[in-house]
Computed example of a mutant assay.
Amino acid sequence: MIPLSTSIVAGVALSQINGETKMLLMKRSKGNYWCHVAGHIEGEEKAWQAIIREFKEETQIEVCQLYNGQILEQFFEANVNVIQIIPVFAVLCPPEQTVVLNHEHTEYRWCSLQEACDLVPFPNQREVYQQVWQSFVLNKPHPLFEVDIGSLN
């Protein structure tokens, strides 16, 4: 039997940078690969609360518009024999969003969909980016995708 883990959340930030929609990628200090924001749910947090906290910790982005990305990032972690199932959120940032990285990342880039897909090592990352691009850039997100973050306060 292979255990399932559902203790991680992920989020893809989108912003208008120099008039073009871009997604945020960061290079992880540990592993030296490009990725989006992700982290563990702590205590009694709901998934959406965890991703808001992770965005603040990793990038100093204050999440104002949060959406269910309508995709689960999933992969098998062979070294610990666990299948990770990770809900993905989309964060719609104001234009020219600033980023301040914490120690978990060494650099960041605002990327087009193609640039993002070219940078990341994992096929599931590319699927996530394509889904987010389709649902939040090429199309207007359905109102049911929006997460009511007002109850966080």
Rank of each mutant, 00 (worst) to 15 (best):
E62P: 06
P94E: 00
I83M: 02
V120T: 12
T106H: 09
N18T: 15
G31E: 00
F76Y: 12
P141S: 11
S135A: 15
A50Y: 12
I8D: 09
A116L: 06
A78S: 10
F136L: 09
W110H: 08
I61W: 11
V132C: 11
T21D: 07
E127T: 01
V12C: 12
H36E: 05
A90L: 10
T6F: 03
E45Y: 10
F136M: 12
N102V: 04
E20G: 08
N139C: 10
E146P: 04
R53T: 01
Q131H: 12
V91Q: 07
D118I: 03
V100C: 06
A78T: 00
Q134H: 14
Q130P: 01
W48S: 14
Y129F: 11
Q65H: 11
Q84M: 06
D118E: 14
T106F: 04
F55H: 06
T6D: 09
E62D: 11
I2Q: 07
K30R: 08
F89N: 15
V147S: 02
V137Y: 06
C111S: 13
V80M: 00
N153V: 13
S15Q: 08
Q125C: 08
N18G: 09
A90K: 04
E127W: 04
D148K: 13
L66A: 01
Q60S: 07
K30A: 01
H105I: 12
E107L: 14
I86T: 11
Q131M: 10
K140M: 14
I51F: 04
I61Y: 14
H105E: 07
V63L: 05
A78K: 07
I17K: 10
A78R: 05
I52C: 05
L101N: 05
F145N: 14
M26N: 04
G43F: 03
T98M: 06
E45S: 02
S7C: 01
S112T: 07
P95H: 02
T106P: 02
L24N: 01
H36W: 12
Q97W: 03
N102A: 07
S151Y: 13
L152F: 15
Y108G: 15
E73S: 15
L92W: 14
H103V: 00
K27D: 10
I2R: 00
E62R: 07
V63H: 08
L4A: 00
H40L: 08
L4F: 04
H105Q: 03
E107Q: 10
N18C: 13
P3D: 03
A116T: 06
V120W: 06
V37E: 00
F136C: 09
F55R: 05
H36Y: 15
M1C: 01
L119I: 00
L138N: 12
V147Q: 07
V147M: 10
V82C: 01
Q97H: 08
